[in-house]
Computed example of a mutant assay.
Amino acid sequence: MFSFITSFLPTSIIPGWLSLDTDPVDSLLKGVVGACGISVLCSLLRVHLLLEESAGNKDDKNTRTRTSSHHKRANPGFIGMLQFSFVTMVLAVVGSRVASLVVLEFVLRAVSGLITAGRDSDKFVQQLLVQSQFPLGCALNCSLHFLHQGAEHRWLCLLLAAALSWWLARRVTILLQHVTALYTLHSSQGYCGICILLLTSGRRLLPTLCTATTISFCVAVLAAIATINHHFLSATEAFRFWTPLTICYTLLVVYMQEDQHRLPSSQAVLNAVVVRLGGLMVLMLTVGRWADVFHILLCFLGEAGCIIPTNDLLDATSSQDGERRQRQ
C-alpha cells in the first residue's frame, strides 16, 4: 500500500537516505514489539523495586514517602501513552543496520561493566537494566528483521507478534498497578493469590528478568552480526568497518567505566548515552551512509525518551544499595 501511494510522488520529494529499509507496515509492527518490550521491562523492574522497598523497610516513613512518589511515576496515564507512541515511531524509523550497531555496542559495554563491577554488581545489574531500555527495543527490532527476512507474508507474523506483545505489556502494566495500590494490604492479610505469590517468590523476579533480557540480547547479537555483514560486498570492506568499530568502543568502554564511578547515577547514564551515540555518529560519518547518521540522531531521541522518564528507577536502585550496605 505504501509503495502504491509513493508511486504518485516525484522521487525528488523523498531523499533516498530518509526512506525506510523495509515496508512501513512491517517497520511499524516491529516498533510496536520493541516498545512493548521496553514497557514490560520497566514495569517488572518497578514491581521488583516496590517489593524490595516493602520487604526491607515496612515501618520506615521515608520509604513510604518514596513509595508514594514511585506510585505517581508508575501510573503516568496520557504521558505514558505519549512516550510509548514516541518510542514506537523512533524504533519504526531506525534502520536495522543502526539498530544492530546499538545492540553490539551495548552488549560490549554490559559485558565489560559486569567484569569490572566487583562488589557493586547488584547495583550495576539493576542500573544496566534501566539503561537497556532503548537497546532492548533495538534488539527486538533487529531480531525480528533477521528472523522474518525474505518471508512472503511476514507482516502476518509481525502482526501476531505485535498483538502478543501488546497483550503481555498490558497484563504486566495491570500487575504493576495492582502491586502499587494493594500489595501492602494484600500481603499482610493473605487473601490475594497474586500478592501471596509475589511475597513468597518475589526474589526470583529480578534474576528471571535478567535471564530473559540476556537471552534477548544473545539472539540479537547473532542477528546484528548477520545484518551488518549482509551490507558488505567483500571481506576487505567488512574488515575496514569492524576494525575502527572495535578499537573505538574498547576505548569508549574504558572511559565510561571510569566516569560512572565519579558522577551520580543519572548524570553518568546521560553522559554515557551521549558518548556512546556520539562515537557511533563519528564512525558512521567515516565509514557509513547518510541514512545511518540520520538514524543515529533518532537514537538520541529514543534514548532520551526512555531514560529521562525513568530517572526515578536509577535513584531507587542507588538508594536501595546504600540502605543494603547500612544494614550489613
Rank of each mutant, 00 (worst) to 15 (best):
A151Q: 09
L156D: 01
H295L: 02
V25K: 03
C306R: 05
N62F: 00
N62Y: 00
A291K: 13
E152D: 14
T227M: 13
I174P: 07
H295Q: 04
W155N: 09
L277Q: 15
R327D: 01
F4T: 07
L144S: 02
S266M: 02
V47G: 07
R97G: 07
E323Y: 04
Q189S: 11
V98H: 10
G137H: 05
G288W: 08
A92V: 09
M256H: 10
Q189I: 08
G80N: 08
R119A: 00
M284L: 06
L251G: 15
P207S: 03
M284D: 05
F217G: 10
A316F: 03
H261L: 09
M284P: 03
S143V: 04
L298S: 10
G278W: 12
L168Q: 01
G278Q: 11
L245A: 10
S96H: 08
V94N: 12
L29H: 04
D312N: 11
Y183P: 09
T246W: 01
M81G: 09
A316C: 10
Q127V: 00
G118Q: 12
A224M: 06
V287Q: 01
V90T: 12
F239V: 14
V87A: 03
T208Y: 01
Q267A: 08
V179L: 03
L128K: 07
A224S: 15
P15D: 03
L28K: 01
S69M: 09
A181F: 15
D321W: 02
L233T: 09
T317M: 08
L297N: 10
L41G: 10
G16A: 15
A117H: 02
V47C: 03
L44E: 04
V87M: 00
L159G: 15
V33G: 07
